[in-house]
Design a protein around this nucleic acid. Structure first.
Lengths: 221, 221
DNA sequence: AGGTGTGAACACTTTCACAGCA
DNA sequence: TGCTGTGAAAGTGTTCACACCT
């Protein structure tokens, strides 16, 4: 058991879960050896066996020595650990291109992230229905977030509007922010924020291509 | 000067560059003290002064003791370091929702990433023009990528098609991949790949919210 | 034998603290 | 004096190697 879990460990847990689910799917109805070793799980998740065991050891002992891990059991444990054994009420703020793409992204729902509210400031968009959810006016943000006890807000608005959106969401009780705006936003210590910054990813690519014109050290696996 | 630059350093360089650009914009025509200290740059980028100095020191000595860094000069150096003092030929593979959102994302072009080709396998989409670029059939991928010497491919196709797309892109000479498919893909060592996995980001949020129901250790700044 | 769980070794990153230049 | 550049210290994350269980 443990203290502070590193971000890299958490991300790997997601990978392990996906690997386990694809194992479950492959085995299909066929019961049989629904077990997997740290070595095989590592291969599927692109890491090492020792890393898998160390990561899991932070949360307990899930395996059987000599046997490996029971696939469905470990998957269940990981879901519990990651907080995926429940559903999350999510609001999408910003119904532009990115917002639209995110809304349509079916994997969210499959994972328990349910987009229950959508906001925009464009009067053209307000009132439209997206697959059962009506786009609401941005001015109603606080009221509506609090009303439905939304827990996570996805921020897909222009950079210069993002801080205001975040402040208002936080004041309405939102405790998690997924930020797509290319801006450094501040949140109180008890609010968790993740940034998705695609330009930054491209810049990292550009850097790696520039100084590595042929050979050594790619990011494989 | 240095050996291997860490991924976190590279990402911070992007942040520094953005901070410098916003400084340049604020100062506008007003010449004056177009300098910035590591302390202030750190504050704007959400890190520490020592970190800024250490990061920059890997590439040389850009500051003046007692004075700080000249803003336009440092910005220029960072652009050079990141490989942003040129333009990159980028192909977008997959013209679905995510592809469409990415294509419209103006910041790419501003940073020198020019989407010169778009591919899809849906006959409905092939032949359409998107702002000057004609969507081409996926079967022509290798030929066309090689023909225009495309350097970076953005993969925005379903997970089960992603590996094939990557293999074909690599064989056509592409050296950098930005992958949006939620799949663990393999590339040769001399090809660089970055993953953008939004579900994984949400899962990290879910984890943090779950075991931190009020208080300590958010991801602020 | 086979494979987990884990302390200890190692590698890498961040922070500290200060010498030295403008 | 003010602030950079940088070795050395502290802190974190990863890999190794092996005791131990089945």
């Amino acid at each position: 058991m443990s203290r502070k879990i590193s971000d890299s460990t958490v991300r790997r847990l997601s990978l392990y879960l996906r690997a386990l689910e694809s194992l479950e799917a492959e085995e299909g109805g066929e019961a049989g050896a629904a077990s997997v070793s740290s070595r095989e799980l590592a291969a599927r998740a692109g890491t090492t066996a020792a890393q898998v065991r160390k990561d899991l050891s932070h949360f307990g002992s899930f395996g059987k020595r000599g046997m490996g891990y029971r696939v469905p059991e470990l998957a269940g444990r990981l879901r519990r650990i990651l907080g995926l054994d429940r559903s999350w009420r999510v609001a999408l703020v910003g119904a532009g291109r990115i917002g639209a793409a995110l809304f349509e992204y079916a994997d969210f729902r499959r994972r328990g992230f349910e987009i229950v509210q959508v906001f925009d400031v464009d009067p053209e968009k307000v009132g439209r229905r997206w697959n059962g959810v009506t786009i609401e006016d941005g001015s109603r943000l606080e009221d509506r977030l609090a009303e439905d006890e939304v827990e996570i807000a996805i921020v897909a608005v222009p950079a210069d509007a993002a801080q205001e959106v975040v402040d208002r969401a936080v004041s309405a009780g939102v405790r998690g922010i997924l930020n797509f705006a290319p801006a450094r936003l501040r949140v109180p210590d008890d609010v968790v924020m993740e940034d998705v910054n695609i330009v930054m990813e491209l810049e990292a690519l550009s850097f790696a291509l520039g100084r590595d014109p042929s050979g050594s050290g790619g990011e494989s696996s």
